[in-house]
Structures are given as structure tokens and as C-alpha cells.
């Protein structure tokens, strides 16, 4: 019965991906405890399709978003190689359902993090470098009408992302105090700072490392981690070109195609 519901929820989300039409929430089918099992079904489906996993995204890292959803913990989803676009490249129309953009700090790992309980020292030693990133989150759920169960099941509302091209070692940047600004043609859309992400982007990464290791699927050398938004998410429009600047990490931009081709 429960397994059927989980399969039904996964099928509903896959249908939304396939048709490009957002679906009804899945919370009527599953409890919050089952949501990661739905996500796992999607992951298995995509692995079977030959997609290459390249890391994880962390969501629900801001106090405001946690309050809004009534949760006290972040969540995570899987990043796939085909979600990444180069700096400045254009995302095709319809590639992300109901896209919203946010600026983040990305970490790239050079060591596995196999332990179920990691320290800041473990994480610092495992991180090769940081990059500025724009995450284009999306929701397969109609009108972003999401609860925790909905967004977790829906791969943490992952869409696509773009990374900057200049790696910065963690010794060279203050990720707690770094300022962030996200602009569209010089018009400011969002501002923030590193501490908006769970007090420090590394706090979010530590939560992820522990959570994944406890689930038996730890972070690995080479993984990219999108640590979470530094300021409010902004809706995107066709034709937009967005630029994010993160103090100490540099800038990164992404474009959106004008209309359906």
C-alpha cells in the first residue's frame, strides 16, 4: 500500500518532467517520512537512464524559508551532469519548470566524507575549492504549492545550475561574511550574505555530509555541493540574463531563452 503510494508519487513527478506540465502536490499520497523514498525512486530511474550524478544541492537553508514551510532542517537533492550549464550560457525555454534563481556558494570536494559525524576540520580538508553559483530551482508541483514532503520528493526542487570558473580555496574567502548581489541588466533583484545559509555555508555542507553518510550514500571526491541560497529567490522571465556576484568568489551569469522553440 505504502510502496504503491511512493511509486504513484514518483510517477506523478516523472509525468510532470516528461510533459512539462506541473502536477498536483504529492503530499496526498505520502507522508513526510516517505518523501526521500520517492526521491530515491526518481534517482534510480534517472541512473537507469544513464544520467551521471555529480553532487548534491542543499535546500531550505534560510530561516525565512524554514519558517514558511514549518521545518527546522534543510533538505537535499541530487545534481546531475546535464543540469549544469557553462558560465553565461542560455537555458532553453521550458528546461526548468517554474524556474526561480538564487545565488549560492558551491563547494567542490577532493576527498570522500565517509564518516557519519563530520567536523569542520574534516570538511575543510575534503574541500578542494569554492565557486560562486546560480541555482535555477524549479518545481514540478503546480504553483510551487509545496510542503516539506513535496519538495523532498521532487528532488529538493532542483532545476539547473551554473558555476563560476575561478576556483577559490577556503583559506582565501570569508564565507560567513561574503556579500551577495543578484542582478538583471543592472537591476538589483536580491542581496544577502553567507551567514543567511544556516549561519555559514559550511554548516549546511556539514549537515549534508553527516546526513548522507548516515544514509549510506556519502559525499565523494569530485562531488559538487550547492550549499544553499544567500538571499531571497527570484522568479525568472524568458529572455532574462542574470548575474550574481559573491564577495571574494567573483561573479557568474546565466541566460534564459526568449520563448519556446
Amino acid at each position: 500500500m505504502r510502496d504503491t503510494s511512493i511509486a504513484d508519487a514518483a510517477d506523478r513527478l516523472l509525468e510532470a518532467y516528461a510533459t512539462g506540465v506541473p502536477c498536483a502536490p504529492v503530499r496526498d499520497l505520502i507522508g513526510t517520512d516517505d518523501a526521500y523514498r520517492v526521491q530515491r525512486r526518481l534517482t534510480d530511474h534517472w541512473l537507469a537512464e544513464g544520467r551521471r550524478p555529480v553532487g548534491r544541492k542543499i535546500g531550505l537553508t534560510s530561516a525565512a524559508v524554514q519558517r514558511q514551510l514549518g521545518v527546522d532542517s534543510p533538505d537535499f537533492g541530487t545534481l546531475w551532469a546535464d543540469m549544469a550549464v557553462p558560465d553565461g550560457a542560455e537555458i532553453p525555454a521550458g528546461a526548468v519548470l517554474q524556474g526561480r534563481a538564487e545565488a549560492e556558494v558551491a563547494l567542490v570536494l577532493e576527498r570522500d566524507l565517509p564518516h557519519e559525524r563530520n567536523t569542520a576540520a574534516d570538511l575543510l580538508r575534503a574541500t578542494a575549492f569554492a565557486l560562486p553559483a546560480i541555482e535555477v530551482a524549479g518545481s514540478r508541483i503546480r504553483d510551487w504549492d509545496i510542503t516539506l514532503a513535496d519538495t523532498v520528493a521532487d528532488n529538493a526542487s532542483a532545476g539547473m545550475y551554473v558555476l563560476g570558473n575561478r576556483p577559490v580555496p577556503l583559506s582565501q574567502v570569508d564565507l560567513r561574511l561574503c556579500g551577495m548581489v543578484l542582478e538583471r541588466r543592472g537591476e538589483q533583484l536580491s542581496t544577502g550574505a553567507g551567514a543567511a545559509c544556516l549561519g555559514h555555508p559550511l554548516n549546511a555542507a556539514l549537515w549534508l555530509a553527516d546526513t548522507l553518510a548516515q544514509a549510506g550514500d556519502p559525499l565523494r571526491a569530485g562531488d559538487t555541493v550547492l550549499t544553499g541560497a544567500l538571499g531571497p529567490m527570484v522568479p525568472i522571465l524568458p529572455g532574462d540574463v542574470l548575474e550574481a556576484r559573491v564577495e571574494g568568489l567573483g561573479d557568474v551569469r546565466v541566460a534564459f531563452a526568449k520563448e519556446d522553440s
Partner: peptide
């Protein structure tokens, strides 16, 4: 980046 703390708790973050 700018932070405002009250009694050691971050109450505002921004740029």
C-alpha cells in the same frame, strides 16, 4: 556582507 547580531544571535544578514 553585513551581519547584525543581538545578544550573539544573527538577526539580519545582507549586503
Amino acid at each position: 556582507g553585513m551581519l547584525m547580531e543581538i545578544d550573539g544571535r544573527v538577526v539580519q544578514t545582507g549586503s
